[in-house]
């Protein structure tokens, strides 16, 4: 399917907007998940600003699609998308992690638009699988999207969920793997290597689509193609760059969760403009 230049351009801009929101929220001198937020930003932009049916005025709308952030540590990215959509005020973003405030450091049920509490890696796909199974039992057409970190696929439960979701023929479930190759302390290949990641999902009975996770046209095509497979779930393996858009943070595991200096902050905001 062809997408208009206008749509592609506007979604790219949304991706950059979400990155700027994240950096603004992280600010100076306090650790925040810079790297993984920037690698996932285009994927999240494509979902919230184009693909998914959601209603900010009615977060529990029965016809909505579901998005679960299994890599819950980049909560700020999802909060930014929800705030930009109007689920809650943009001014609330910088107050994330404030004591007693509703925006916690990881997605928490009760926040408008959050579908599941995540943070203990490996559980979000099972939760999404359960929602998809419930929708299927009720013969509802809603779709479920789960964003999974590539490092997170070292968790055994991901593969339990992968087996289970294909066994239950959950065509309404789409996992998106943010494949940036890095985790908190370095390269995945030097820790518990997970490659060949696409082959693994295929072997578990999933429809697999590989994309450049920063190429909006490829992302949109994959999200649309996923719907053609009604008898099995789809895994979109999105090849991404950790810290995408911020020169000094790109492909640097050190910026997984780190405080920015004023100089770094200014440069990041300039580059993301």
């Amino acid at each position: 399917m062809a997408y208009s230049e206008e749509l592609i351009q506007s979604l790219k801009e949304k991706g950059q907007l979400l990155r700027r929101d994240c950096i603004k929220c992280i600010g100076v001198g306090v650790a925040g998940h810079v790297g993984g937020s920037c690698s996932s930003a285009d994927l999240v932009a494509a979902l919230y600003f184009h693909k998914m049916k959601v209603d900010p005025k009615n977060p529990d709308w029965e016809e909505r699609d579901y998005f679960l952030l299994s890599k819950g540590h980049v909560a700020i990215l999802q909060y930014a998308a929800l705030a930009e959509k109007g689920f809650f005020p943009l001014e609330d973003l910088p107050r994330c992690k404030e004591i007693g405030f509703y925006l916690q450091g990881h997605p928490h049920l009760g926040i408008p638009g959050i579908e599941a509490g995540t943070g203990s890696l490996g559980q979000g796909l099972s939760l999404g699988s359960g929602i998809a199974l419930g929708l299927k039992l009720d013969k509802k057409p809603n779709r479920v999207y789960v964003l999974v970190g590539d490092g997170e696929t070292d968790e055994g439960q991901i593969w339990e969920a992968a087996m289970s979701s294909s066994a239950k023929k959950l065509g309404n479930l789409c996992a998106i793997i943010d494949n940036n190759g890095l985790q908190a302390t370095g390269a995945i290949k030097d820790r518990l290597p997970n490659e060949p990641i696409a082959d693994k999902w295929r072997a578990f009975g999933w429809n697999v689509i590989e994309v450049d996770g920063h190429n909006m046209e490829e992302i949109l095509t994959a999200l649309d193609d996923a719907e053609l497979y009604t008898d099995r779930p789809t895994a979109i393996v999105a090849h991404t760059v950790k810290g995408k858009g911020i020169s000094f943070a790109e492909n640097q595991a050190g910026y997984h969760n780190r405080a920015l200096t004023q100089e770094e902050y200014d440069l990041a905001m300039e580059e993301l403009a």
Partner: peptide
């Protein structure tokens, strides 16, 4: 009845999703 196989961790989290879907 939903048979989840020998995968208790996935069974419990899946149940969480089912609850979110109104089950």
């Amino acid at each position: 009845h939903i048979e989840m196989g020998i995968a208790e961790a996935n069974m419990i989290s899946t149940a969480g999703g089912l609850a979110r879907a109104g089950k």
